[in-house]
Design a protein around this nucleic acid. Structure first.
Lengths: 136, 136
DNA sequence: ATAATTGCAAATGCTTTGCTTGTGA
DNA sequence: TCACAAGCAAAGCATTTGCAATTAT
């Protein structure tokens, strides 16, 4: 079970406001990877006064606190997801935009090896697969 | 040996203007992965009248013709490189911004396998490693 | 109490576009 | 010649920021 975002804020010393609680709730309940506009829209159902600037400030704050992760997939706006317990990468359906998460230890290992062979310590990486559904 | 961008334009039926020739030349001679502002600056040494809008229009045109590739590395502007004969990925030095190209067939193969296992045909991918130099 | 946060609108930074003039095939 | 390209400035879009009013601790 994932610890909810609100708990993580407390744990990280992030001050909780009504707006932040609401954004946290909406993000926790998103099964997808919403962008700022989508978050603003969803949050707006509960608090129509909330400003888009607050959404921007909050996702940035959460990201800097390690509570959410930001992704910039090809050809779309920044998307956010609750920071996962263990790392995963993404496969994006080029037709529907649907996002599937996956983990592949073998690739992870090879990436580290490649970096080391080139004289680098691997600090971060980005792996995204873009594909189209195979119809059975 | 790489065929120069100007030849590729002719080959692809892309009309050559003085500006495009100049941008092609500057890109061919860039050993790095320049962004639009850098291209504009370099090109400006030979033609100070050239507009940044022309740079934007030209890199987009070249990209759509498959002559150059565009990259959006984390935290920086779009960068361009002459489209390579054979695919490669990038390792970015998080301190200096230096970009190293690499190829790893094993990772390529695994990516395709991952996509297929998830029911997708792999159409495109993005793999970027971010690291810091190991001092010897 | 008071330092931090919000909402709003203005500003930013990169990129695109409308329009008139210039030009390559 | 004449469809297409360039230059310029204005517009677009996502994101950030300054500031006065509000709020959490």
């Amino acid at each position: 079970m994932e610890v909810d975002i609100e708990s993580k804020c407390i744990q990280k010393g992030v001050r909780l406001t009504e707006q932040r609680k609401l954004i946290a709730k909406v993000m926790s309940e998103s099964e997808s990877h919403p962008d700022v506009a989508e978050l603003h829209k969803k949050v707006g159902k509960f608090d129509s006064k909330i400003s888009i600037a607050t959404i921007y400030r909050t996702v940035k704050l959460f990201e800097e606190a390690g509570i959410v992760s930001k992704h910039d997939f090809k050809g779309s706006k920044s998307r956010y997801e609750q920071a996962p317990e263990e790392h995963h990468d993404h496969l994006i359906d080029i037709n529907s935009g649907e996002i599937t998460e996956f983990v592949n230890e073998e690739i992870e290992k090879l990436q580290k090896q490649v970096a080391e062979k080139l004289g680098y310590k691997l600090v971060d990486h980005r792996l995204e697969l873009y594909g189209s559904k195979i119809k059975k």
